[in-house]
Design a protein around this nucleic acid. Structure first.
Lengths: 218, 218
DNA sequence: CCATGTGAAGGTATTCACAGCC
DNA sequence: GGCTGTGAATACCTTCACATGG
């Protein structure tokens, strides 16, 4: 299967495996079987093996996967093998939280710039990053920043995305609750937090009667 | 198709349509075609029609959908037709941002309680909600709170979920980057923000060469 | 004997194309 | 004429079962 394109759903699960491997490595183990990893991350063992089969042979039959080697392989596939520099636009409550969030490190992601239209915020430092005026967005390209997080109000989202695209950004994570469009060269993932919560009640039957699934992919 | 179970992917898109309809209604229109809504929310028209066909006839051929009526129908299907009360556990940076986040309102979701283990935070008010000691979690059932948001560190996530389940919560949105398990009666959606950002570089080819998709389902 | 990797089968979701209704 | 609703076709993803390798 080495010559097959990787399914989107697999790309969605790979960071989960990576997280599991990193935590496992912390516990001093050297090898892990698809079954152990499966138990740890909450995905079926055959699913893990199939997912990994799309991009290389990492396992040894009878032994399992070398944790270090597999983690490197996944990072390379996800193109996370080099540090990725990201910018944040919109330093409100959510933006501030993201600037202080330590979780990006694990994936080699680093928020190195922040922007906000509010002149009172410009110049202040949040999470170790100094807030700049959005007029400076044009400098992203020369600062080698290819990713951006948009945490501005709905009404400003599309204009912000347009500026980021013009500044050479190649991937955008959008928290604004609205559709945003961008050139085909730029990948946009929209994450509407309220919408995720809104999806829960559907799975809560009014009458006592249950569906099967417990955890969800996203 | 009225007697068919609703696909999970459809459930994931329904809040998108609802958001689009609410914004459209603000603009004073009474009817909308699947094509107009499609353009507005960024989903194909036939996809919208197919999705809606799973749970009722809302449209009029030649005219389109009555916005008010369709919004009600979607709300009912998602069981968002009654106000849903939610609790937040973990009032750190992210938790505070969520308490102040106005976006939940649109879906009839209301965060009415907040908890944090830090005694210095207990008693303070954030986003109009007073922070309580987690020892009070047992009162959720009698306060008619069926949803919860978990925004605690990874290490505390599973214990928090266990407490919430014991307190009668039926749906949980987990922001901690870890697998959490719960009784089948409880629906858990895990949302790992760093993981979403980590998925972006994969779609950014090193060499100039492009894939087709631009926006993502989430 | 144990665990991987993968064809093949089965299931789910997307896309198409058009009949039917206003 | 315009727009919905939906069977049928297609594409995609998951699950199984087992041959293969250490």
């Amino acid at each position: 299967m080495r010559y097959h394109r990787i399914p989107d759903e697999t790309v969605r699960r790979l960071p989960v495996y990576l997280r599991g491997l990193i935590v496992s490595a912390d516990q001093g183990r050297e090898h892990i079987s698809s079954q152990s990893l499966a138990d740890f991350v909450g995905v079926d063992a055959w699913q893990i093996r199939k997912d990994l089969s799309y991009f290389g042979d990492f396992g040894t039959p009878g032994v399992g996967y070398n944790i270090e080697r597999l983690a490197r392989g996944i990072k390379k596939t996800l193109r996370l093998d080099t540090i990725r520099r990201a910018a944040l636009v919109g330093v409100g409550d959510l933006g501030s939280a993201l600037l202080s969030y330590p979780g990006f490190r694990m994936y080699g992601l680093d928020i190195v710039a922040a922007f906000d239209v509010d002149p009172k915020k410009v110049g202040k430092t949040v999470g170790g990053v100094e807030i700049e005026d959005p007029a400076q967005l044009g400098t992203l390209r020369q600062r080698d920043i290819s990713l951006a997080i948009v945490a501005v109000p709905r009404a400003a989202a599309q204009a912000t995305v347009d500026q980021l695209v013009a500044a050479g950004v190649r991937g955008i994570l959008n928290f604004a609750p609205s559709k945003v469009t961008a050139s085909k060269r730029v990948k946009v993932i929209t994450l509407d937090i309220a919408m995720e919560l809104a999806r829960l009640p559907y799975y809560i039957p009014r009458v006592e009667q249950m569906s099967e699934t417990t955890e969800d992919k996203g």
